[in-house]
Amino acid sequence: MARRKKVYEGKAKILYEGPEPGTLIQYFKDDAATQPTQKAGPADGRGVLNNRLSEFFMSGLNLIGVPTHFIRRLNMREQLIRMVEIIPVTVTVRNFAAGDLSARLGIPEGTPLPRPIVEFYFKDDKLGNPLVTEEHVIAFGWASQQDLDDMVALALRVNDFLSGAMLGAGIRLADFQIEVGRTWEGDYMRLIVADEISPDSCRLWDLRAAETPDREGQTREPGPLDDVYTELARRLGVMPSNVTHATKPTLIN
């Protein structure tokens, strides 16, 4: 088998050259989640679940007319995607106060927001991915005003789709982030959803757990899903409900 050419490697994924011009193969690793507020399950098999979950969400978006880079899943850890020019700005959509929004504005975590709030963060790990304004994005040439308008429209459509899918599974979508890329069809450029949509890019709260009173009979506030990767896959039907999360094999003497 010919050795594949690696194009990029990040914390959670590796990109290889694709079999056709304008395509890439995206490989999902088992590395830790990027959302520090979530309870992450065992690392073994996380990349497999993220591959399947991202396929589920990206395919659903494609079906309702929201363009994404996803073409098809190749195997348990890989999918074929369109090559795009990633805009160096992460788009975050917030439905409830949480994380750094609560810290910045002093709003109690879990507070419903009056409407979905869209924020932009400059993609630079060394700088801690700082919050930036539209003025920054335009002034530094990362994207045009038209690009920003299209990115907001894309993000809000993704929010509608994800919120409905999660709510049907007893999950509250507090916030999420997406990356957007440019793709060309001849001389025509358009923006599409890229990277991935998985528990690594979402803040999810369990509404079913909140329905169960605690020992004192008090109703609990929604909290993070236990083993978010496996539980989300189960509830969305991505994997059978009787399958447990894979762990390392135990040696028997």
Rank of each mutant, 00 (worst) to 15 (best):
A209H: 11
D147A: 11
K5Y: 09
H245N: 12
D124H: 06
A169D: 05
N242I: 07
K6R: 15
I197L: 11
Q218Y: 15
A174N: 08
D30K: 04
L127Y: 02
V48A: 14
T34S: 10
T34R: 04
L127Q: 13
R52K: 15
N75H: 04
P114D: 09
W205A: 02
A43N: 08
D200S: 13
N50V: 01
D187H: 12
L191T: 06
I138M: 12
K123G: 07
P249E: 10
R104D: 06
G106A: 07
S102T: 13
L15H: 11
V137K: 02
A32K: 13
W184H: 07
S201Q: 03
L236W: 12
E216L: 14
A32M: 08
R172M: 14
G128C: 05
V132A: 07
A194S: 14
P224K: 00
Y16D: 08
L127P: 01
D30L: 03
K123M: 14
R203W: 00
T68S: 11
I252W: 10
P213G: 04
D160F: 13
Y8Q: 09
V7T: 05
E179F: 08
G170H: 02
Q145A: 14
V152W: 00
M1R: 08
G10N: 06
N159C: 08
K126F: 13
R82H: 15
D175R: 01
V228G: 01
G10V: 08
K29I: 02
N62R: 06
S144C: 09
T219V: 06
D149W: 00
L204N: 00
R235T: 06
M189V: 15
G65E: 12
I64R: 06
A103N: 13
L167D: 13
T37F: 10
S201P: 02
H136D: 12
R172T: 02
A169F: 05
E134C: 04
D149P: 07
V48L: 10
P199W: 03
K248G: 13
V180T: 06
E109A: 14
A246C: 07
A103Q: 14
T68M: 09
D149H: 12
Y27T: 05
